[in-house]
Each structure stands twice: as C-alpha cells, then as structure tokens.
Design a protein around this nucleic acid. Sequence first.
DNA 1: TTGTATGCGTTATCAC
DNA 2: GTGATAACGCATACAA
Lengths: 338, 338
Amino acid sequence: MPKLQDIAHLAGVSKATASLALNGSPRIKEETRRRVIEVANQYHYIPKRYAQTLASGKSGIIGVVTPNVESEFYGKLVRCLDRQIQRRGYTMYLALSNERLDLEEIAIQHFVGSDVEGVVVVPLNLPIHASQLQYLSLLRGREIPCVFASSFYEDADIPYCMVDLEEGSYRLVTHLLKSGHRKIIFYKGFEHATPTALRIKGYRRAFAEYGLEVAESNLIECESIDYDYAYTLTAQLLEANREFDAIIAVNDAMALGAVNSLRHRNYSVPDDIAVAGFDNVNYSRVSPVPITTINQDLDEISWGAVDLLFQQIQEKGVPVQKRIIEPELVVRESTLRL
Amino acid sequence: MPKLQDIAHLAGVSKATASLALNGSPRIKEETRRRVIEVANQYHYIPKRYAQTLASGKSGIIGVVTPNVESEFYGKLVRCLDRQIQRRGYTMYLALSNERLDLEEIAIQHFVGSDVEGVVVVPLNLPIHASQLQYLSLLRGREIPCVFASSFYEDADIPYCMVDLEEGSYRLVTHLLKSGHRKIIFYKGFEHATPTALRIKGYRRAFAEYGLEVAESNLIECESIDYDYAYTLTAQLLEANREFDAIIAVNDAMALGAVNSLRHRNYSVPDDIAVAGFDNVNYSRVSPVPITTINQDLDEISWGAVDLLFQQIQEKGVPVQKRIIEPELVVRESTLRL
DNA sequence: TTGTATGCGTTATCAC
DNA sequence: GTGATAACGCATACAA
C-alpha cells in the first residue's frame, strides 16, 4: 500500500532521495539514509518489483524449466539451482514442462514476457533435436542467455553443464566386467535421447576395451522407464529363460524394480544376478540390497550451469562452453560378488 | 524488443486500439483485430507482464511456498497446485522454504513485492504457532488472500484444505486392532506439529474405542523422520527386546526403513510384525513387502486449497473455511496376517 | 548531498 | 470503432 512517494514524504525528502537511500547509494548522507529506512520499515514498505523492473530494465529473475519436480533427481536439482541463483542475488522463476516439449516452449514464452535475465532449461528426457526448439531464436532475438543443466539437446549451440554419462556408464560396465560379468542387460530409454545415447556409448566402449562383442539383444529399449516397467520386464526375462548375469538400468527406480522382481522369484542379488542403476537417488539406498549406481553431483551441475549463465549475463558474446562433471561410481552390495 | 507502440504503428492503428485488439475486446472491428494480431505474431511480440501489471493492477500470479520439492509428497503437491492455478488462468510463483520458518517469511515478502494476488502456504512440519508468523499481518494489511494446503498452523485464522489425518490414523490403527495387533508402536515426529498431533489423536481414539489403554512408551518421538532414523530405531528396539507386534510410521519412508530393518534381522513382515505408513508415496509401493498406508489425495487437496483461495480473491470478506478431505486406507501386504 | 523531471510499456478513461 | 492521453510506481540523468 505505501509507495515510495509516501515514504519520501514522511521522511521529509524527495522520491529520488528516498529511492537512493533505500538502495544504499553512497551519495546520500548517512543521517538521511537512516531516517528513510526507519520510516520505510515502520510502514512496512515493500517496493514493487514490477515498477522497479520497468524503470530499471533489470528484473533480477532467472527462469528455470524442468520436466518435473516430484522425482528426487529433478527435485534436488531444482533446489540446488535455486540456491545458486539466490547466491547471485537473483530470484528463480520455476516452470514445469511436465515432460512435454510444447509446455517447455510455453514456459519460455512466459519467461520472456516476465523479462527474465536468463533461462536454465533442464532438458526433457526425449529424443529432441535443436531444430524443434522454437524458443532458441526467440531468446537469441532478445539476447536472453540460456543454458542447459543435467543434459542437452543435440546441435542447439547452447552452453550446458552435466555429468559425463558416457564415462559413468563406462565405469559401471567396467566394474561389472572386472568382476566377471559378461551377459549384462541394459534397460535403456529412448535410444535417441541424449542421456540414453551417452550411456549406451559408454557401455560399448567398455565392452570394446575388453575385446568383447556387444549382444545387441541385451540392450533393451523400454517405453517407460519406471519401477513397474522394470519389475515386469525382469519377470518376463526370467520366465523366458533369458541368460544374463547382470542388469543395468537407466535409473535407480528401475534398478530397484529389477532387484525386487529377482528376489521375489528367489534369485539372489548379487550372487545370481548383479544389478546397478544411475543417479544415486534414495531408491538405490533403501533397496533391500543396496544398489550400485552412478552419482551425479547436483550441486556441481547447478553451480556450473548457473556460472555459465551468468558469464553470458555479465558480458554478451562469450563463446559457447560446456562443463562436464565427473561421474562417481558408488559401489554397493548389489554388484559385490562374494 | 518490439513494443505495443511498434505493433500499433506497423498495423496502422493507435496503441489503444492495438491493446484492445490483442486483448480481444469486442468493440474492435474484426478486420482490424486480425491485422493487429497478424503483425504481432509476425514480429513475435510478447507483452511485458511488468508493464501490464503496473498498468492494470493485476499480476495474475499466485505465490506458493513449500518446505521442499524433492520429496515425492511435496513435489506432487506442487505439481497439482500448479495445475489448479493454471486452470484459473493464473501463474504460479514458487518459493522453497527449505524447512525453515525464516525462509518462509522471506518468500512471502518476495511475493508481496511481486504483487501476487494470493498465497498458498504449504506449512512446515514443525511445531509452529500463528503468533510466530509475521507475514499474516503483512498479508492482511494488503488484503492479499492466503490459504494453507496439506496442513495448517494453529490459531492462524486462515482457511486451509487437508486430509483428515486424525481419521486416517484412526482407520489405520483400527485396521491393525481388528486383525489382533495390540502392541502398536508409533514412530511420530514433533509432538506439537499439527500433522503429528492429529495422528496421535486418531491413535488414541481407536484404542479408546476398543477399550484399550495406550502404552505411552509406544509413542516414540523421532528427532528425524526419515528412512535411516527408522531403520536404526527399529534395530534398537529389537535388540532391546521390546515387545511389539506392529509399527506405524509417520510417513512411508520411515515405514520402509522399519520393513528393511526387520527383514534384515529375519523378522517376517507381516507375520511377525506388521508395518504401516502414511502418504502412499512410492516408497510404500516399491517396498519388498508392499506397505499399508494412508493415501492423501493431492489433487483434491490442491483443488480445495486453490478454490478457497479464489473465493477470497473474487470477493473480499468471505468467512474463513476449512476443507477436509477424506483419508483412504490402502491395505497392502505389510499388515495382512495370514 | 538532494530535488526535478522524464521514461519504462502497458491499460484504461476519455473524447471523437 | 478508434485515437489521444493520463496513470501505474519506481529508477535515474541531470540540475541545483
């Protein structure tokens, strides 16, 4: 309710002085400054962001779009991004793309309308090519910087920060090969989604290094990458008498599905079959047999992504960079052969 | 970059006409309207929200504060709230209180500065009394409506929408009593946090109805209400030879901790000990023994909360109401005695 | 050190 | 039906 005008009046100064005082300008007498602030507090004055933004041209807002927020991985990522953005004195404006490209697009339109100073896109886990992203030219046209976090879209020419999933997958597979596993099934998502493609690449590299052929039928594409799908799929493989001694799932929820499915059918994990996942979320810890996984350091991802973003905000025309975070193999019981 | 001015100019009309045309005013000639819109699209015109808000006095924004976003419960709640808010043509502005009252307070200050038209508070799971909430008077002073979702703060005189946790707990305990369990341990959180207090009340009511005394030592206060704490606590109880035939945990993660702890020590769930939780999140489904729990319909909670909020937005001075959602007992293996 | 005046990009109130 | 024009609340260049 109270506006700058009122505060200025009550403090016996002009609007300009009041504004400068509240924003801590050094060219205001200490005495005046204290008085203005006093009055402002007393009347619970809160400046209107809208007016500030309009007048100054800076919103102090960073838009963040994420596929969802209820999976532990994305939820934590959002929290970390929020922290990084606040650390820079900015505010996060969050939108959910709900796993849909059209909503991602709309979210960014909103961002533009809200005059965000930068955009963080947490890419969808779908096979998407840069040419499908209309918002890229929109952002470029307005010179609004953009980064990807935790994944990226092919050929987008946008900086990104993510864990080296190819290397992570490589380490995971190597870990299994080292302990003698050879028939390693991989529950993968959409082949052409970036994160899946990278993991498969790592899988192949590990096999190649061991001079082993990859049995293509062991790379199983899953329409859905959740617990239930993995649970059922595992049961089907067992029933079909498929031969395998290990399962790697594209995420921990699926790995847990495999573990439970195996144990319910009296297979021992890891003695009969080893199981591993990705992401190091709680599912892997709370499994009846703790699951080996690849940790993605979300603090680092967020730090890197936000840093790349602010580089662009602070000076236009910095070259497009990528920041690759090292994956961490977390070995747990599910792959420890006695 | 392009502003209303430009669009108007290019379409050969005035700013006023352009504005009315874009906002679909009926008093603009169809022909003109189409032309203006055409030009606007062509130049990728996106109006500035800030300017709109400033000029119209309506931001179209609802602020939502939540303790976190990475737990499935809150994450889903946020998604549902977002959907409800969008359904009304508004935009959600999300802030994380990170389980801290001071951050909840700050978030709401930001909301006020952003001219939100309403606030949804997802209360912290802590013993907090209305007198500690400074933002209530702030919001009242500016006539910004507010609601609580999924819980509430005592004596706040703010409308809220939540599941009847007392009744849920009552049904859960009754379910166990009915199948012969008597020594029912309850892993509770802070006694004076609303959700815990309600659950305990339901527990007592069920016992009273069966004419049974409540053994106070069976109500165990937990400093931390997560998987690890429950896992360890359960182990300790077993080691101390505590007698009990069932465990109810204040949430599903803790219930899973209990299940795993029991099974690792070769106790059968439910044959030796029954286990139940609250919230019906994935942990209860993916447990090696699926866990009986109380479902909280987050769609309904969100619908109710947002509805209460918009009642206030649409007309000032509506009386403070509460909306209570019925809990649903989801019986699974963990409490099914053979 | 402080005050005056202008502009930010819309919407809304008027006339025409 | 459409076009001027005055707000909206603040920041800021410039003047004092």
